[in-house]
Simulated assay, not measured.
Amino acid sequence: MATKGMSSSASTPAADPVALLSALIRCPSVTPAEGGALALLESVLAPAGFRVSRPVFSEAGTPDVENLFATIGSGSPHLVFAGHTDVVPPGDAARWRHDPFSGAVDEGFLFGRGAVDMKGGIAAFLAAAIDFLGGRNGTFKGSISLLITGDEEGPSLNGTVKLLDWAAREGHRFDGAIVGEPTNPKALGDAIKVGRRGSLSGRITVFGRQGHVAYPDLAINPIPQLVKLVRRLTAEALDDGSERFDPSNLEFVGLDVDNTAWNVIPAEASARFNIRFNDQWTVETLEAWLAARLDEAAGNEIAYELDLQPGWSQSFLTHSPELIDALSDAVEAVTGRRPELSTSGGTSDARFIKDYCPVVEFGLVGQTMHQIDERASVDDLRALTAIYRRFLDRWFG
């Protein structure tokens, strides 16, 4: 199934990551739109012998999302590469050096939304896998699968979490996973992600009494009360970090008062926050920490409600010398640098995969992700392909 008149044998040679990434960028797959990206991947994977499925998942109140699962081989060891073709909106296209969906190559860089986050990782792995299969004449002991979602940049409800469950029900069991997120802060080979802090979001709502600003004795203003609660939660650090994780941090991201009038004291005010937490905490212990401090600050004077949002994730750390050493050796062989084993940064779909098999993350340099003029170095893209190729030889060796 070709996309936009292209075929894998013409303008997107299967083992050429630059041509493949350029073609993927030309698919405007702004989350949750498929945009032709999964169709393009199928047009490359199927001729290479992969069995391709494209399940669509639904959730009330969210858009349907199309996903892709492709597999080749049988049995163990079973390696799964996970990624997403959905991208964030490009912003003002006029501010880009090249159209954000052109896939243009200029001065050694390939420009476009998703070049780094994370169509580049998908293109590199697919090129490496096809080259690996060609070198083995299509035969090897084990299985290779690609688990590609269109919902990573969205609510993450109809993507990887449901695709993993679907794959398990289809009988797939994974021995290791690589997520192709842009993990390197400055140069390719800087870091492999071997874990992630957890993430918890919540909202604090304070209930006052609406009234006229000229008669404050007849009203209760919730705004100063909310400020008191916010100050209490930001008065102390959660922790100082642990052996493998950075310190946990609580950040307020929004203060909301539904009031457009100048002479009305509002009835309620709320604040939204997010906590990134390390292995010293769980969602349950954080909830208890929050409630204790809010109750202390509120006393008998402030009526409030704490609402923790769905979609939270616990912290995790991968313990798999086979997976970590094989990837570290491949990175060092290509770049000359032994990567740091890192747990820094935000969250990713690895938080779902960890429940099925050991998982690590390694991809391109992430300095331009989500920015105007997002771009991937052509040299880095080819080097990442070489790293994945060496890893496959080691993993299936």
Rank of each mutant, 00 (worst) to 15 (best):
L323E: 00
W312D: 02
E296P: 02
R293Q: 15
Q309P: 03
Y304F: 12
L294F: 03
E301G: 05
N300D: 15
L327D: 05
P321A: 10
A303S: 10
S315T: 11
A292H: 08
L308G: 02
P321C: 10
E296H: 10
L306S: 06
Q314H: 10
L317S: 11
L323S: 00
Y304W: 13
D325H: 15
A291K: 12
P310C: 13
S315L: 11
A303T: 07
N300M: 15
A326Y: 04
S320H: 11
S313H: 06
D307C: 15
A291N: 11
A291Q: 14
Q309C: 09
A298L: 08
G311L: 10
L317T: 08
R293D: 01
T318V: 13
Y304L: 09
L290T: 00
I302N: 00
L308P: 02
Q314P: 15
A298R: 01
A292N: 13
I302T: 02
S313N: 08
I302G: 00
P310H: 05
S320A: 14
G311W: 13
L306W: 05
H319R: 12
A291E: 10
P321W: 07
P321V: 11
A326D: 08
G299E: 08
G299W: 05
W312C: 04
E322F: 11
Q309L: 13
I324E: 05
G299T: 04
D307E: 06
E305V: 04
A298G: 06
E301R: 13
E296F: 06
Q309V: 14
Y304P: 00
D325W: 15
R293T: 08
A326K: 02
Q314G: 07
L317F: 09
S315A: 13
L294V: 07
F316L: 07
D307H: 11
L290A: 03
D325V: 11
Q314E: 10
A288V: 14
A291W: 07
S320E: 03
E305C: 03
Q309N: 11
S313P: 04
W312S: 01
Q309E: 15
L290V: 09
W312E: 03
E296Y: 04
E322W: 14
A326H: 02
F316P: 00
E322L: 13
F316M: 02
P310R: 04
Q314V: 12
E322H: 10
S320R: 06
L327C: 10
P310N: 11
E322R: 12
P310M: 06
W312Q: 05
A303I: 05
L294S: 04
L317D: 03
P321S: 06
A291F: 07
D295G: 14
I302H: 00
H319S: 13
L308M: 10
L323V: 09
D307F: 06
A297H: 05
F316R: 01
I302Q: 00
P321D: 09
L294A: 12
A326W: 05
E322V: 12
S320V: 15
E301V: 06
L294Y: 04
L327V: 07
I302A: 00
Y304M: 02
G311S: 07
L323M: 04
L294D: 00
L327H: 09
